[in-house]
Amino acid sequence: MNTAAHSLLSSPWKQGAKDALPLLGGYIPVAVSFGLFSVQAGFGVLETILVSAFIYAGASQFLFVAMVVSGAPVWLVIVMTLLINSRHLVYGPNIAPYLQKDVRWLPLMHLLTDQIFALTLTRMPHMTPSDRLRWYVSAGVIAWLSWILGTALGAIAGDELIERWPLISEVLPFALPALFLVMVLPRCTDRRWTITMVMATSTAMLLKLFGFPNIAIPAAAICGALAYYAIQVRSIDEGGRS
């Protein structure tokens, strides 16, 4: 039995809240940093909070503020930030088979971040169709509000927070790799999937280490998928020869 199927609570609201908790460890420290960065760059507190509420995509928000402050052309700011967010293109189609026909899903796509996508893909196959919307709203809204709250904290008192609790921003973000690890492990059911996941993981880590954080995720995911197909082709070739 895999991780997701083993530990579902009776209420989808509670389950969504429980599943979203580890995200806060990653979201709040980054959101605090963004709030502080944005205010120091000259944006107002309310403006900073609105950026987080409306764009709701970490790396592109930092880029948006940095490029606006540096006086980059409008079209370039828009193109660059949307390019960073373009990895989200594959998230909706992946979870679509689990979402029942309901127009309420459309506005809820705003909540579909990297982490919520990963959680959704892990949890939804093991839920009844009627529970899925409630679970998603619970997990998604908690994550979104934590991002907004963290931004507000950073914009209002970021300096003091980081000075008083410097370890928080160093220790809590470990919740994210731990969360992703427990989502990756159940997928490693056979040799082919294990190699695929190791390939994607190591490629992303190396790309980030060598200074390509924005393309790390899509490029590594493609490498992993190519590895999956390469192993399949090799298996067929070997089967054909024997």
Binding site: V90, Y91, F117, P177, T196, M197, A200, A216, A219, G224
Partner: peptide, 10 residues
């Protein structure tokens, strides 16, 4: 799934 593994790596 490879997207999730990539997020883990990053």
């Amino acid at each position: 799934p490879t997207m999730i593994a990539a997020m883990f790596g990053a």
